[in-house]
Amino acid sequence: MIPRRYRVVHVWPELDDVMSMELAPLDGPSPQFKPGQFNMIYPFGVGEAAISISGDMTDPGRLIHTTRAVGAVSSAITGLTKGDMVGIRGPFGSHWPIEDQTGREIVFVAGGLGLPPLRPAIYHALQNRKDYDGLTIIHGARSPDTLVYPEELTEWKSRFDTEVDVTVDHALPGWTGRVGVVTTCLDRALAGMDAVNVSAFVCGPEVMMRFSAQSLIAAGVPCDRIWVSMERNMKCAIGFCGHCQYGPDFVCRDGPVFRYDKIARRLGLKEI
């Protein structure tokens, strides 16, 4: 599959090592994407990395990604500047089935850089708020200076129809928000809900997703109404090479978004 060329039209820092960029297509219009899908981004001459689409799916012409620099490819991506060109393959993978959850109470649980892959689904829920019974967004981070999209969190919180709970694992005096792991926040939020009517979308480090899913289930959320997003190293992204194998599934093709009950047993296994 040949990458399509995109021009970097805007870049902005999110955190010390995290950057967002907006891309405009050079080879025809950008394909539609679904929330939770990812693209393979190719900074020419370096290599490809799977990065979730973090923008608004009603505006696919403004393709937005948020990337943390961890190695060669992701550092090349975060080093891109306005006017640079990149190759894009995608969108790939399964998506958050937010559109199928009408009439239900929606809970998003985002740990750290788990917020960017959830943001398109959050945008959808906010834009179609009347279709849902309730909307709660829980974001956990390591410390106050590592919260992603803080301005947007504040904006969402200011809406009367949306609950936003932000928590950090630890903080210094001066921080007046919540301190505690994301599951503590989740337990508290769930206490006021009719758990059977909750649909939950969880994204973040695997351990955090596992603990969050356990909290959701303990509160009575049906396990077929919980979705998580998995990450594995990818190469082809189209189900050919087997690099992203996760038990019987390929994350690029069968995921990255999985219904929790389908992978619950695997989530707790060592070295898979």
């Binding site: 992701s74 740990g111 750290g112 956990g140 390591r142 973040g204 990450e231």
Partner: peptide, 9 residues
Amino acid sequence: IDVYGCEVA
């Protein structure tokens, strides 16, 4: 275990 300490996404 500092889950976000070494996370990628």
